[in-house]
Design a protein around this nucleic acid. Structure first.
Lengths: 108, 108
DNA sequence: ATTATATATGAATATATGTTCATATGTGAG
DNA sequence: CTCACATATGAACATATATTCATATATAAT
């Protein structure tokens, strides 16, 4: 260690463990291609599991599992209409997070 | 499937596979607690591996491995000074991404 | 030159996680 | 009421990945 002042300043600005845990968990959601696709689709639309599975060309089971993750993270909400369950986004951070990500990778 | 127009509109707005892949990989970086801590520390400071390991109370090896991930993702750059290797952030998206994440989890 | 220090890295291990498969639940149609 | 359809979910499996351990490299100090 070289500079004691710099070291202490850095220590002071560290985020607490809870915040780190929660933020990393939030971004874990966006780190999976399937979930990212689902969230991006739901930006513009309210869709049911069946439609999402069709759009992504994946099994309904797989989509359903991932929607559960998104529900648990309180990023989407569901409402039933007949046999179908329609999903919509809850959080307005989602759009910003996707936009920044896309912006970032497009700059390369 | 219920609404053909809605379905087609959704299909049109889907991100291409490359973008999805790259964005998910970007957020994979932020989904690990150690990497998130490192990036957050580097927001305000230029620090060497030794300091980072001390601050996070982790092995130098572990930190070094994660710094390699960050280098490979072109989020940090390194410059040598004597025995030490100092790391700094390359990208200005990093701060925005961390800030939105923190903002999100603090709202709950 | 030799030793100590800082960093990097490959291999191994343990853990986390996404998909598949089987099955259950709930709803509308006939 | 029975059947088909949409969704949910637990278990199993395969894969990805973070840390540890051992070791290598580079530089500074003595």
């Amino acid at each position: 260690m070289i500079d004691r002042d710099k070291f202490l300043k850095a220590k002071k600005n560290m985020l607490d463990e809870d915040t780190i845990f929660n933020v990393s968990n939030l971004y874990k959601v966006f780190s999976d291609e399937t979930r990212l696709k689902i969230l991006n689709i739901l930006l513009d639309n309210e869709l049911c599991v069946y439609d999402i599975a069709e759009l992504l060309d994946m099994t309904h089971s797989s989509i359903s599992h991932q929607l559960k993750v998104l529900r648990d993270m309180k990023l989407v909400k569901a409402h039933k209409h007949g046999k179908n369950v329609y999903y919509t986004l809850i959080d307005d951070h989602i759009e910003r997070i996707i936009k920044i990500g896309v912006e970032h990778v497009n700059e390369k």
